[in-house]
């Protein structure tokens, strides 16, 4: 058991107002005779109407974490430890039949590549109404169609009515993404896991979709876990942010705290990699050496230490290579670093 795990809130798993309470979640994939931990002992809560950003690079485990919450980890991967408290149940141990009922209805997933999630030979109308029918909703064609049209209008799809008769390939990427979002919203889920929902879109379309997601959270109280590699979109719509590195959350806090006072050296590096949109650019960028580690070769101790500028600046202290940083996850802003710069952060 790692040190990170020692700090577990003993009393109430579903804290006040939280829609989702994840404790010690671990996802393992068997590889070459041993188990590789893609997500390692992750704990967090999501409040009602909150948009929480989950930021990380490739292989950080951010998408795997999203899939784990949906219980959609592809075999042979498994959720090997931890609890996912949602709506009074533990999703981690829920029978698959019950989980099926929840997917789409209580919690839904929106992915980056909308086209890949659609059946190319069925119309948009069928794609959307299938979601309702699958969950035993209304079965009259007319009212299903009306509901689908209304939903498409809500996601501001131009020509909603006509679009229902079209096939996925006849829509532009931005329109496909809006259809995918409509599907994710139509049953009014409490929680949406949105994995890079706007990454493939043009900035003008992205701006509209982000505004739409924000609006849905504010008006309906829906919560969103917004998985992305892009800090600029996090700053745009998220309330809180969790930074993931090598299968773990390394920093967590409100967006304004993390952006104004990043405490973990990795977060600092990511933020300095967020190039300015206007004004004088820096002559040279501060680049982290090396590349993100793979799940089958997580470094010992703090997993960031081989790339850490602070570790090098401090003369490579041994503790970073041997011991996991301890964190107090009940703090509103915390960072998993032995030398975290938490001055002024919400302690």
């Amino acid at each position: 058991m790692t040190k990170q795990q020692q700090r577990m809130p003993g009393s109430d798993p579903l804290r006040d107002g939280a829609v989702l309470d994840v404790r010690g979640l671990t996802v393992e994939f068997p590889a070459r005779g041993r188990n590789v931990r893609a997500v390692d002992n992750v704990s967090f809560t999501v409040g009602r109407g909150e948009i929480i950003g989950l930021v990380g690079e490739s292989a950080s485990g951010k998408s795997t974490l999203g899939l784990a919450l949906m219980r959609m980890i592809p075999a042979p991967g498994v959720v090997s430890a931890g609890t996912i408290a949602f709506g009074g149940r533990d999703l981690a141990s829920l029978p698959e039949a019950e989980m099926r009922e929840l997917r789409g209805k209580a919690l839904s997933l929106i992915v980056q590549d909308a086209l890949a999630t659609m059946n190319p030979v069925t119309t948009i109308e069928e794609q959307i109404t299938e979601v309702i029918r699958d969950h035993g909703g209304d079965r009259s064609r007319k009212s299903l169609r009306a509901r689908a049209t209304e939903m498409l209008r809500e996601v501001r799809l131009p020509n909603a009515e006509q679009s229902l008769n079209r096939y996925p390939h006849q829509l532009s990427g931005g329109m496909q993404q809006r259809v995918a979002i409509a599907e994710g919203l139509i049953l009014g889920p409490e929680l949406i896991i949105a994995d890079e929902p706007t990454t493939a879109l043009d900035v003008t379309v992205q701006a509209q979709i982000l505004a739409l997601l924000r609006d849905i959270c504010d008006t309906r109280g829906t919560s969103i876990i917004f998985v992305t590699h892009d800090l600029a979109t996090v700053a745009e719509i998220c309330d809180r942010v969790m930074v993931m590195y090598a299968g773990r959350i390394v920093e967590s806090g409100t967006v304004s705290a993390v952006f104004s006072k990043p405490a973990h050296p990795y977060t600092k590096a990511l933020l300095s990699g967020l190039l300015p949109l206007s004004g004088e650019p820096p002559a040279e960028l501060e680049a982290l050496p090396g590349q993100p580690p793979r799940p089958d070769a997580w470094p010992t101790g703090c997993r960031f230490h081989p790339r850490c500028p602070l570790w090098r600046a401090l003369g490579e202290p041994e503790i970073c290579t041997t011991t996991d940083p301890e964190v107090d996850e009940s703090d509103s802003h915390w960072a998993a670093c032995h030398f975290a710069d938490l001055e002024g952060a919400g302690r």
Binding site: V203, A207, A232, E236, S256, S278
Partner: peptide
Amino acid sequence: MLISAAPNGDPE
């Protein structure tokens, strides 16, 4: 329009 559509990266 294009430049303003890009998120400016400042939560404040």
